[in-house]
Amino acid sequence: MHAMALTQGWKDTVDRGVADATWDAYDTTIQTEVTAYNLKFQKSPGYSAVDWKLFKAIVWVESGGPGSSAWTGRAMQIGVPGDTGLGVLQRADEGSVLIMSKQLAAEVKNSAQVGNDPALNIRAGIAYVFTRMCLSEFQSVIDDPNVQSYTVTPGDNLSIIAKKVSTTVQVLEELNPAKKKMIHPKDVLKYKHASIQRVITDWRDFTTTTVADRYNGGGDPDYAAKLVYVLDLFKKLNRQAPKNP
């Protein structure tokens, strides 16, 4: 990946951030959010702590900095008319419900607010990146570890019983291996309360290339190169970040 494809005009725009501390205005918002996700998913399979500066780079790339109208509105450009990201969060699609806090899930319902509040736009954008970076599956999840019992009645099968007692066929099969193929009336089956839930099973690596693919959706062929360019610029920064505007 090379930066030669990037236009001088675009580079001039983001280069301004090196000398202008107002470009750091959302550092606290980004750090707070990414730290919370790193804590939340630290034990999630395949997850490695993410560097918050990657998201700072996304904000610079997406907004074009404090000179743009996006900076004080859609700083991460989620919710732009025609974009699919905000709708995914609002409908809790693609497993986003596993990513967002309940508070954020409620806040993103207000499209106008996501468009006008740059901090909320950034939090929504970060949530969408995390949503797009995880892989999930529907699995049988134990809701209550206590073992219960159920006496089979005529007409029952494992699927019917699972619905009757709020468990899953998988749990019934695991706790009653001898009854997997055939059950009879008056058989007593063990079960635990369980349900089928969407569960995160893996994470993609948070590289500039993958994040570009997953967040930008293949719209800008230079997106990953732009992230690399901005991340290189950050090495030149040496200043105290101001508070959020």
Partner: peptide, 15 residues
């Protein structure tokens, strides 16, 4: 089908 969403500096793709 490939569509793009014009954005501030980088278009987003909807493929």
């Amino acid at each position: 089908l490939q569509e793009i969403v014009k954005s501030e500096t980088s278009p987003h793709g909807v493929n």
